[in-house]
């Protein structure tokens, strides 16, 4: 038994206390009650975003220039994350790589967000035929596992950061399209939209002023989830060697470099991996918060 059951099924304590004091008070209390994990996640994301935007503020050494004397040194006070086989500072390479990793990810999510929501909106509003055709295409895209689909795109376009962004975007278009279509259909049959139709409001305005404001929440939460998934997919493709070309650092590529020194220098693989995992866990935590925030309304 959980609290949700009773707070929804039994009397809602707020029902009666809805008075003049309502609004302002509630927002301040929710701010204070944010769970610790969520705050930590937001911090992680902010730090990594800062790395991506202004790497020069954080790097301690030139990420591309190695010092052969200190090859493969484990983490220490000077080199927090240790050094690699060429004596390059791994912390600086991770910071420098944030731009490549997150930039590619952002491009991928943006592309699939725009394409997917547009397709979903069209499928949800246009007639039956268009809807069926679009959704069957989405079905087919989903019948191939996303990594294989991305690989097929890479096979066709060739490797490189932009190409893997496209590849990852193609694979996540279906979820955006489905969600957006679902939102349109869900709200389309709601009573307040019936009321709006009866009030002479025309379809484009209904979409813009009633449907979109409601859809934006769930779609935003999905974008966050897809961002996490895209970080993983991009790093996997880079790990396989389809991303940036050396010596540019990218997180997945850093790990694949460390692979050859797995037996002796654990930090070359472990630390960049932890950074990826930390970012994805944090993004997912935030996405989860966005989702639960929206659900009750």
């Amino acid at each position: 038994m959980t609290a949700t059951e009773f707070s929804t099924r039994l009397e809602d304590p707020e029902e009666e206390s809805v008075g003049t004091q309502g609004r302002g008070r509630r927002t301040t209390t929710t701010m204070l009650r944010l769970p610790f994990g969520l705050i930590l996640s937001a911090l992680v994301v902010l730090v990594v975003l800062a790395w991506a935007v202004l790497p020069s503020l954080f790097v301690t050494e030139n990420p591309l220039l190695g010092d052969p004397d200190i090859r493969l040194s484990p983490p220490n006070a000077h080199h927090w994350f240790g050094t690699d086989h060429l004596g390059r500072d791994i912390f600086s390479r991770v910071v420098q790589g944030a731009g490549a990793s997150l930039g590619t990810t952002a491009i991928a999510v943006l592309m699939s967000f725009v394409t997917g929501t547009f397709l979903g909106l069209v499928a949800g509003t246009a007639g039956r035929v268009v809807d069926t055709v679009l959704m069957r295409i989405v079905d087919v895209l989903q019948s191939v596992p996303s990594l294989l689909l991305s690989l097929a795109v890479v096979a066709s376009l060739g490797s490189g950061p932009v190409n893997i962004a496209v590849a990852v975007a193609v694979a996540s278009v279906p979820s955006f399209a489905r969600l957006m279509r679902g939102e349109v259909l869900r709200w389309r049959n709601s009573l307040f939209i019936e009321a709006a139709t009866m009030s002479g409001i025309r379809t484009p305005e209904i979409l813009l002023r009633h449907v979109l404001p409601h859809a934006i929440g769930p779609v935003g939460a999905l974008a966050a989830i897809e961002f996490g998934a895209a970080v993983l997919a991009i790093s996997a493709l880079s790990f396989l060697g389809f991303g940036t070309q050396p010596p540019d650092p990218e997180w997945g590529f850093l790990i694949s470099e460390g692979r050859d020194y797995l037996a002796s220098s654990w930090w070359m693989t472990v630390i960049p991996g932890l950074v990826i995992a930390g970012v994805v866990v944090s993004v997912n935590r935030i996405a989860h918060a966005l989702q639960t925030e929206r659900r009750p309304s």
């Binding site: 709601s190 009573l191 307040f192 939209i193 019936e194 009321a195 709006a196 009866m198 009030s199 002479g200 409001i201 025309r202 009633h210 404001p213 409601h214 309304s297």
Partner: peptide, 23 residues
């Protein structure tokens, strides 16, 4: 059901004024 027939994101004024806008 007044809960379902009012857009939760609309203010009272926007909901009441909607037919005026629509027509």
């Amino acid at each position: 059901d007044p809960t379902g027939s009012l857009d939760p994101k609309y203010t009272v004024a926007a909901s009441i004024g909607e037919p005026l806008r629509g027509f």
